[in-house]
């Protein structure tokens, strides 16, 4: 059965779904790294908070009697984006801005500290139990049938992949075309000079965190809908995977983050499908090691060439 094309297609759909979620989180890592040169290890927790805000909003909507699925999804999406971006903004304002200009190690340790803090904060407020949710969207379309093996694309999977593509297109256009995007690229390339031509660097950095958190919150909501269960610890592994994706694609490179996310998702899905589920993380991280040995700046990253 594993040799059929149908089985391959099934794994491909799973991989793309998973990769979309990783890609959205990875953008947050790579953007922050690009602009202030630090790894925001608390970004995985921002994703987790996005998932929690989604489940809370679903419960509130359920109590309020709004059960028409498209409307509920839209409200949850907006609520998750708005509240999570406030967390992202506050994280930068409270923990990272005071440390700007201090050694990188200080910022790194603070990021790890904030990650632990946010995990415990959610654990205390929401308890450590798993939070299950009824599937909101079920069903799907049959893609192909091979004997009695049916490959179907779930509506949920379709929504995840399409929403991710839409968000990434909007986001790429924003960086390439808008005034804010230009300011962001200017800050990334030379922060002092950007200030000298009148760019408000602090505000631009804040907005970078807000955008990263917004994308992570969408990933959080999709994770909740796809797996139907969350807890305060989901940010850790998803965060590490997304960070791996960002490094794999070339940290600092936005298309790299998207590509890296997809690759990590696909590797995991195919490894689970063809070898063993237990070793899927090993596979993903081994590929990372191999890429870093042969292409230290990642797949799409530009190597640092020092001009002498």
């Amino acid at each position: 059965m594993q040799n059929t094309f149908a089985y391959f297609l099934d794994q491909l759909i799973n991989g793309l779904t998973l990769g979309s979620i990783y890609g959205l989180i990875a953008i947050g890592y790579t953007m922050v790294y690009g602009i202030i040169g630090m790894i925001n290890f608390a970004h995985g927790e921002i994703f987790m908070i996005g998932a929690f805000i989604s489940i809370i909003t679903f419960l509130i909507l359920g109590l309020a009697g709004i059960t028409w699925v498209p409307l509920a999804l839209l409200i949850v999406l907006i609520a998750a984006m708005v509240f999570t971006s406030i967390y992202g903004w506050a994280l930068e304002r409270v923990a990272y801005r005071p440390l700007r200009g201090s050694p990188r190690l200080a910022a790194l340790i603070t990021a790890i500290g904030m990650s632990i803090f946010l995990q415990n904060y959610v654990q205390l407020l929401q308890s450590a139990r798993n939070k299950p949710m009824q599937p909101v969207i079920s069903g799907g379309v049959e893609v192909m049938r091979d004997g009695d093996y049916v490959v179907s694309l779930g509506f949920m999977q379709g929504i995840i992949i399409v929403l991710t593509i839409v968000l990434m297109v909007i986001f790429s256009l924003m960086i390439a075309r808008t005034t804010l995007g230009r300011a962001q690229r200017a800050c990334e390339q030379d922060r002092d000079m950007a200030a000298l031509i009148g760019v408000n660097v602090d505000r631009t950095i804040s907005l970078t965190f807000v955008i990263g958190a917004t994308l992570a919150s969408v990933a959080g909501m999709m994770f909740l809908l796809y797996y139907g269960v969350i807890d305060f610890f989901i940010g850790f592994l998803a965060g590490i995977k997304a960070f791996t994706a960002a490094v794999l694609g070339g940290i600092g490179s936005l298309p790299g983050a998207m590509l890296g996310g997809l690759l990590i998702g696909l590797i995991e899905a195919f490894w689970s499908g063809y070898f063993t589920v237990e070793y899927k993380d090993v596979a993903a991280f081994s590929i990372l090691v191999l890429v870093l040995i042969f292409r230290p700046s990642g797949l799409l990253g530009k190597p640092d060439i020092e001009k002498v």
Partner: peptide, 22 residues
């Protein structure tokens, strides 16, 4: 020299008008 090296020449001049455009 402190240009934005990975932006085009034209973009370097447009980003300099950031505040007006913002």
């Amino acid at each position: 020299i402190r240009l934005f090296p990975r932006m085009t020449v034209l973009e370097n001049l447009i980003v300099a008008q950031h505040n007006k455009l913002m």
